[in-house]
Each structure stands twice: as structure tokens, then as C-alpha cells.
Write a protein that binds this DNA or RNA. Structure first.
Lengths: 328, 328
DNA sequence: TTGTACGCGTTATCAT
DNA sequence: ATGATAACGCGTACAA
């Protein structure tokens, strides 16, 4: 590998000038700049990342800790993050925690040693652990709010409330919420806002769960679903898919007997029978914004605390007014 | 951040001894070893990754270039890779090429500067570019074979041939293959082996495509499917899902009118109506093995050239003997 | 505008 | 068994 010294020699200048010609062209005479550039080109010079990191204190790496990749929710998140990272000459250092707090903690700390900062999407893991971590290095939280720590959240709660309102408008008065993993922050937010809405509208809300966010759990949930509930909201698409199958198996038609909607929107929901009403969550933007926020943080800019990205309902055929009551 | 120098001072030894106590304990007296370890502990010492990389020439990072993450095929691949990387104290540097050869080339080269080696899953991209890259740094290919370059492939071709044999056994004599992206290496392998099998069995094989591996393309393919084909094999699950819907829309029942099978197996295929016969591909193992291979390469061990992981058919309700002919 | 010289934190070599 | 010291490759005060 050609080093800066090699380039300098080939161009007949000192290391310092060579470095400047490449990093701060404006500080160097046009003629020498060209000589250096040419030499660098010829020798195929690439600055050694480790050496640069050592002097600058910057690695150009952004750590990203996600609970899993099997859940299609995270694919667009990572892609959004990667695209934005790329634009600012950064790379993505990725780690999968598999929802294990211990593992997550260890991975996060080890990633942080190699990266300039961390983005964590951590539905599990304690507030205090996150606070402490944020003190040690630049940290941006995703879909989670802890005090005033920098965070980017997809505002599913508000979107879900709109979905709830839609159901209420259609005349539903007995609604079930199939909740997600125990202790999930996002799930807590959703339950809370749904309960509030139900009370306001004097409707009944029954919460099933907590449940693992899986297809199979959805099938179970369909079995446990009260017969008199006329609509079901589910924590995510997997549970929803499971519910769809479970309800079919139990001969409860969607939407004639019961309406169904999901609090996120994987592409498959639009191609089920019937297509399922869902929440369009700007996942890719969340990933992108998280990187932007982190880079701002690194640059010393510390503007917003929590960035909130709106989600909105996508109405499909799985929701309809309940059979007994007309549209009010 | 506490440096090695700080630890050395606190323990009353030299930098060299401190370093040895931590990296090569056997070279140091028990008593001093304990003093150093204790000091390191107290000061919360973590070796600076950049400095270490500078002297050792190793970053502890493994680069991974994938075409996309939207395709659920890659999630388990990355997770398998990450788990194995973790076991050997490595981290994953990830980049998404989005099937763009230019972008891929640039990302790969930039990743390589920060990583000890690269794993590339690159259905596009030319052989020569890959050869040249492999000369410059340790490289492991996934699902692609280029000369004698180190590679890990899921042997879908053989599995697909078994699937084909199954169809032939069932009596199908007019089979369609809905092929994947133009220029895809894996797709080429599959077409070739299917053609060969068809000739042997004196059956007719019609290849549709090349097609983008998407749900929508599958719907189109259903429309273009010859009426007299009694069975369809598709490049991947997306196309298969699309076919399933397209066939239903065209009132062609599966499997009564036409059998359907996929050359990979995303979880959703088992919960469609009917469940679809597919190929179980050990994707996670592929990712894991790719990392193992790369690390072996870094250690100077260069054993196998191409590692081949078997895939096998999972028979479900979507395949049955053709209506007109009995099982032979 | 350019060059000299030092520091970043670690590992490795060579003495002692 | 331990210590002094030289790399590793780069950026950047400071001097000229």
C-alpha cells in the first residue's frame, strides 16, 4: 500500500504539503496541488483509515444496534440509515441483539469503541443503562424515548389513534387491542393512547396480551378474542397475519363479522384476502433521520431532542362498520 | 479515556509490561499481571481500536456487501454472519448496493479500506471486477462462483432439480420456469439444470423471463403463463406469491389446474392458501460459513475453494399430479 | 506557500 | 521478567 510519504516523495514535496493538497486544497499552490494529486492517482493512494482515525479521533463509522433483522420492519430502517451514512462518507457498523438485554449491552459497548457514535433501537433494555451509555458516547435512540436523550421515533401512537377514531366513526363500540411484547416502550405508548380514546368515546377497549409479535401468537389471539368484539387492532403485521388466519379458521369473516387493522404496514398486508387496513410508518426515513441526528451530534449541533415522524392510516377492505349498527 | 500509559503508571510498570499483561499474560509475572489488570479495571481501560489497528494491521471488522435488505433472504444471512463474527471478536461493516454495479464497486472498495476482508453477495457485477478485487484484499463470494475464488453457495440448483424430479414423477410433462433477474448467476445455474432435467425426461420446459423478482412481476407472469403448462417453478418467493394471486385472478386453481413451487422458502409460503411447495435454503448457515471462510483466509488457512450448502424441497399442497394424467 | 517535528495509542524488537 | 524505544501513517502546530 502506498503511504502519504510515498506520494510526497513522488511529488517532490513534504508529507505535510501532500496531506494538505489532499485534505485542504485551498492551502496549497495550484501547481503543487496538481503534482500531488497526480502522484496520488498514479500510486493508487488511499489514506490509511486506522492512522487517520488515530490522529483525528474519528473513525467515520456509525454503530447501529437492532434487536433483529427477521422482522421486516428493520430492513428499510437499515437501508435508510445506510443511504444517509453514505452521503456523509460514513459506514454502518451493525449488530443484532436478538432482544437480549445482556447481549445488547455488550454489543453496544464494543461497537462504541470502534464507532464515532451509536444508534440503538432497543425496545428492551433499561432507561438507566441507556442514560449511562449516552454519557459515555454520542447516542441516538430509535422508537424509544428516555428523558431528554436524542431520539427519533415513528409516531405510531398518534396514527393508531386515528385508526381507532376511524373505527369509532364506523360505529364500533367494542374493540380489542392485541398488544405486543411485554415491556415494549412502543406498545406501552399505543395501549395508553387507545385506552384514552376509548374512554373519551365511551367505547369498550379490551387489551389482549402481552404477546410475542409472531404469526403463531396471532393465531392464538384469534382464539382468545372475545366473541362480542367487533374490531381488532394488532401491535404489528405478524400478529395481524396470524389473526387473519385464526379468524378464518374460526369462521369469523373479515370484515363482516369483525374488522381488523394493524399498527404497522408490511407490504404483504396489501396482498392478503382481504387487504388489511394498516398504519403506514415511514421506517426508512426514521433510519435516515437517526443517522442525520447522530452526525449533527458529532458536529456539536444539538438541535431537537426527540424527532417525531408521523405515520398515517391506510384504509383497506378489512375494516367496515359493524354488522348490527349502521354508520352513525 | 484512559490509555495504556495511564494503566502502566497506575500499576507502576512500563507501557510494554502493561500491554503484555493484557495481551500475553503468560509472559508476565503473576503479581504484576494482577496489578495491571486491577489498574485497568479501575480506570475502565479499553484499548484504542484505531491505535491497535495501526500497529497490528487488523481492524477486527468484516465487510459485508449485499444487494438489498428488503428481500427477506438477506436478513438471516446477515444474522448468521453477525453471530459468527461475534464469536471471533469481529464486527460487521455492512453496505447495501441496491443491485447497482457502480455503487457496489464503490462501496466495496471503500469498505475494504476499513475492514480486514470482504464478503460480497453480488448477483450482478462482472467476473473480472471480482477477480481484480480479490487480488487486492481477502474476499469471499456468496451465491456466486468465479473461477477459483473462495465462495460459499447455497446449492439451490440441485435442490431445484429434485423439485423438478418430483414434478416429473407426478407426471408433469409441460413445465414452466419463471426466471429471475437478467444476468443473475444463480438464475443461470437454475435454468441450466432445469433444461438438462427436462431433456432427460423428454418433458417440455418453457422459460419465462428474465423478470425482476417481485410480487408484481409474478402477477404479470401468471398472465403470460401458457395455458397448457401443468406446473410452474419460480425463481423466488416473491414471484411465487405474485403467481399465486395472478393465477387465482385468472381462475386457474392451484394445484388442480396448475402446480406451483418456489426456489426458495420465505416463511410466508407456508401460510398461503394453499401452502406452497418450496426449497428450504440454509441461508443463515451460508452467512455464518462465509464469515468463517473469511477468517480462515485472514489466518492464512486456505482450505476449500467453494463451499456448497445443500438445500432440499419442502413438499406442500401446491403441487399435485396434473389433472389429465394419473401418477405414472 | 511550504517544511520540520511532534503526537495520537498501541504492539514489537531488542536490550537488560 | 521487564523496560526503553522504535515503528505504524496521518494531521497539524509552528517556523520559515
Amino acid at each position: 500500500m502506498a503511504t502519504l510519504m510515498d506520494v510526497a516523495r513522488a511529488a517532490g514535496v513534504s508529507k505535510a504539503t501532500a496531506s494538505r493538497a489532499l485534505q485542504r486544497p485551498e492551502l496549497v499552490a495550484e501547481a503543487t496541488r496538481l503534482r500531488v494529486l497526480d502522484a496520488a492517482q498514479r500510486l493508487g493512494f488511499h489514506p490509511n483509515a486506522a492512522a487517520r482515525a488515530l490522529t483525528t479521533g474519528r473513525t467515520g463509522l456509525v454503530g447501529l444496534v437492532v434487536p433483529t433483522l427477521s422482522n421486516p420492519f428493520f430492513a428499510p430502517l437499515v437501508m435508510g440509515a445506510q443511504q444517509t451514512a453514505e452521503k456523509t462518507d460514513h459506514h454502518l457498523l451493525i449488530a443484532v441483539s436478538e432482544y437480549d438485554p445482556t447481549r445488547e449491552a455488550e454489543l453496544a459497548d464494543r461497537l462504541a469503541e470502534q464507532a464515532d457514535g451509536l444508534i440503538m433501537v432497543t425496545p428492551v433494555g433499561t432507561d438507566t443503562a441507556l442514560r449511562e451509555r449516552a454519557r459515555r458516547f454520542p447516542l441516538v435512540l430509535v422508537d424509544r424515548q428516555v428523558g431528554r436523550l436524542p431520539a427519533v421515533v415513528a409516531d405510531t401512537a398518534t396514527g393508531l389513534a386515528q385508526l381507532m377514531d376511524h373505527l369509532l366513526d364506523q360505529g364500533h363500540r367494542d374493540i380489542a387491542y392485541v398488544s405486543g411484547p411485554a415491556g415494549s416502550w412502543a406498545d406501552g405508548q399505543r395501549s395508553a393512547i387507545l385506552t384514552e380514546r376509548a374512554e373519551q368515546a365511551k367505547a369498550r377497549l379490551r387489551v389482549l396480551g402481552p404477546l410475542p409479535p409472531t404469526f403463531d401468537a396471532g393465531i392464538e389471539a384469534a382464539r382468545a378474542l372475545p366473541r362480542d368484539a367487533t374490531a381488532v387492532l394488532a401491535y404489528n403485521s405478524y400478529l395481524t397475519l396470524g389473526l387473519l388466519h385464526g379468524l378464518a379458521a374460526a369462521n369469523r369473516r373479515v370484515p363482516e363479522d369483525v374488522s381488523l387493522a394493524a399498527a404497522d404496514d408490511l407490504s404483504s398486508l396489501r396482498s392478503t384476502t382481504p387487504p388489511v387496513t394498516a398504519l403506514d410508518v415511514p421506517v426508512e426515513e426514521v433510519g435516515a433521520l437517526a443517522v442525520t441526528r447522530l452526525i449533527d451530534l458529532l458536529a456539536g449541533r444539538h438541535v431537537t431532542v426527540t424527532s417525531r415522524l408521523p405515520s398515517r392510516p391506510v384504509l383497506r377492505a378489512s375494516t367496515a362498520p359493524p354488522a348490527a349498527s349502521a354508520h352513525r
